[in-house]
């Protein structure tokens, strides 16, 4: 995992309530970061490929996010849609020792 990626600090993990998502801009990218109830974090593109909906506002569980506009669903680990839509980009994200969210792109 060494090499070409850059770590971007997005902010404190606690900026995201447990079980919800928040949206971040990183350069030109719009990214939705989710804080799962089991402690995990996931990051995917923030804009739903179906009609541009705000994925950070969607309901999640451990596996999926549901876009609030038309209920299209996406796997948070692979980005694949389970409702026939094009996939999301998935970004590696983690929490560092200072409880900060770090995005690797």
């Amino acid at each position: 995992m060494a090499g070409m990626t850059t770590g971007h600090r997005l902010g404190p993990l606690d900026d995201i309530p447990v079980g919800e998502g928040r949206a971040y801009a990183v350069g030109d990218l719009k990214i939705a970061v989710f804080r799962l109830r089991d402690g995990g974090v996931r990051a995917v593109s923030a804009v739903c490929p179906h009609a541009g909906g705000p994925l950070a506002d969607g309901l999640i569980d451990r596996r999926l996010v549901v876009c609030p506009l038309h209920q299209h669903t996406f796997d948070l680990s692979t980005g694949c849609s389970t409702t026939g839509q094009p996939p999301l980009t998935v970004y590696p994200v983690r929490v560092d020792a200072d409880d900060q969210l770090v995005l690797e792109i």
């Binding site: 770590g7 600090r9 919800e20 928040r22 801009a25 719009k30 939705a32 804009v47 950070a56 506002d57």
Partner: peptide
């Protein structure tokens, strides 16, 4: 909740205050 009314779209990159750790980190 934190950021309850924070926008999810469209987003403008917030100016980042230089933090103690630099943005360049090893993977």
């Amino acid at each position: 909740t934190p950021g309850q009314f924070r926008p999810s779209l469209p987003l403008i990159e917030q100016p980042r205050v230089p933090a103690a750790g630099s943005p360049q980190r090893e993977a």
